[in-house]
């Protein structure tokens, strides 16, 4: 209904940290002036490893509509294999953005009318000194580069704060390295 709300859907696996990633972006967005920030995990019976979804809405004004996102402007995928498991492309708005953690090149993702950004976050995060499989800080770098919605500096600060007891420097580095290495495809 409201045109000013940017709707971002996050796909990950239970235990992968998609909710934490969305929470970090929510905090950073609020800190840089978004007054409308809403983060909704999906509800019910989450299991480790199973595909999970988290919703994030951003606006400069207060958001009153607390409801799941029906047509996202952007979709962020923490594990590229999820694209083959569940339908996540069909309801993205025309001209919307798909942001994927994948070892594949951006050319591997061709969808009519969608913009695509890719980064091998799994690999980059290891280079940054994180344990294999920790991707929820790195993916934020890809989100920052692709969306341009929140400055990477603000996001890095929010990452350091969230992970203050769990490798803050390495998590922050994963995001900034991913930011540099994110490839945005031709539309």
């Amino acid at each position: 209904m409201r045109k000013d709300i940017i709707e971002i859907r996050w796909h990950g696996r239970g235990g992968q940290g998609a909710v934490t990633a969305a929470k970090i972006v929510a905090n950073a967005a609020f800190n840089v002036g978004y007054r409308g920030v809403l983060m909704m995990p999906t509800f019910g019976t989450e299991r480790r490893g199973a595909p999970v979804v988290t919703f994030l809405k951003l606006s400069k004004e207060k958001i009153y509509d607390i409801s799941p996102i029906e047509k996202p402007d952007m979709v962020v995928v923490l594990d590229h294999l999820i694209i083959e498991e569940v339908s996540i492309i069909d309801d993205i708005k025309p001209g919307g953005f798909l942001i994927v953690n994948t070892p594949k090149p951006v050319e591997a993702y061709k969808y009519n009318g969608l913009k695509v950004a890719v980064a091998d976050v799994t690999k980059i995060a290891c280079e940054a000194g994180l344990q294999n499989g920790i991707v929820n800080s790195g993916i934020i770098g890809a989100f920052a580069k692709a969306s341009g919605l929140v400055d990477i500096e603000a996001l890095v600060e929010a990452i350091k704060y969230e992970f203050k007891e769990r490798k803050p420097i390495e998590n922050a580095l994963a995001a900034s390295l991913t930011y540099d290495k994110t490839v945005i495809g031709d539309k």
Binding site: L38, M39, F43, I66
Partner: peptide, 10 residues
């Protein structure tokens, strides 16, 4: 429940 209890907002 959930809609407010589990949703994050400022």
């Amino acid at each position: 429940g959930y809609i407010l209890s589990h949703t994050y907002m400022p």
